[in-house]
């Protein structure tokens, strides 16, 4: 797995607080049993009217096509646990999300895809949004090791990301299964010490 220390590119802005994962991917697309087509669906019902005609939305704008950085406001990705939401953004082309804050399950799932969610102050997010909307060709680079976003003019802004998420990304262990499988002996010891597995286990299921 590759190490993700710096990630960036052109950016797209989606404004608004508390944008939930139902808005990112409507539930009807969760009936697909693979994630393969999720890249077609981000913000589907906000990008189309009731007749399927496209309407104004940053993800529809020509100038934002090819963006790899998504800039959002507060509590982005709240609500449903559906990994379809980060999958949809990733498959559309997003590689890092900068926001004021994120829903906890969304943030956890994003890291497992190798797509960091990093937090900046409300003021800095506002500045970034204005910068990107005014200059869509501007390239932003998220430097996870330095905890900074590097701006085209040489300036930077501070970002926050949990140590665990940052370390998983920068050491290339963000797909956690292999890391967890390393300790199956310890897992068994922990399980055996729990009284509900050893002392008072209920009837066996099978």
């Amino acid at each position: 797995m590759n190490e993700i220390k710096q990630v960036g590119g052109r950016a797209v802005v989606v404004r608004g607080h508390d944008i939930d994962t139902d808005r990112i991917v409507p539930a009807r697309y969760l009936k697909e049993i693979t994630f393969n087509r999720m890249g077609e669906y981000p913000f589907f019902d906000e990008r189309h009217d009731a007749h399927g005609k496209t309407v104004d939305h940053p993800f529809n704008e020509e100038r934002f096509q090819g963006a790899e950085v998504l800039v959002v406001n507060r509590n982005f990705g709240c609500g449903s646990s559906r990994e379809h939401a980060p999958q949809a953004l990733y498959r559309w082309g997003i590689r890092v999300i900068i926001g004021e804050s994120f829903g906890p399950i969304f943030a956890g799932s994003s890291v497992l895809l190798g797509m960091p969610t990093v937090m900046a102050s409300s003021e800095d997010v506002g500045k970034l949004m204005a910068l990107v909307e005014g200059e869509p060709t501007a390239e932003l680079t998220v430097d996870l090791e330095a905890r900074k976003v590097r701006l085209p003019d040489g300036g930077d802004i501070d970002i926050d990301i949990s140590d665990g998420h940052r370390n998983a990304l920068t050491t290339g262990t963000w797909d956690s299964t292999a890391l967890l499988l390393d300790n199956m002996g310890e897992v068994a010891k922990t399980a055996d010490k729990l009284p509900y597995t050893s002392d008072f286990e209920g009837p066996a299921p099978l």
């Binding site: 646990s81 990994e83 980060p86 399950i105 956890g108 949990s162 967890l180």
Partner: peptide, 20 residues
């Protein structure tokens, strides 16, 4: 814990999660 699908994979494969 409510979890995403990749975390479901982790629990199926290891009965554990990487958590903060």
């Amino acid at each position: 814990f409510g979890i995403g699908t990749s975390q479901v994979r982790d629990v199926l494969a290891t009965q554990t999660l990487a958590m903060d």
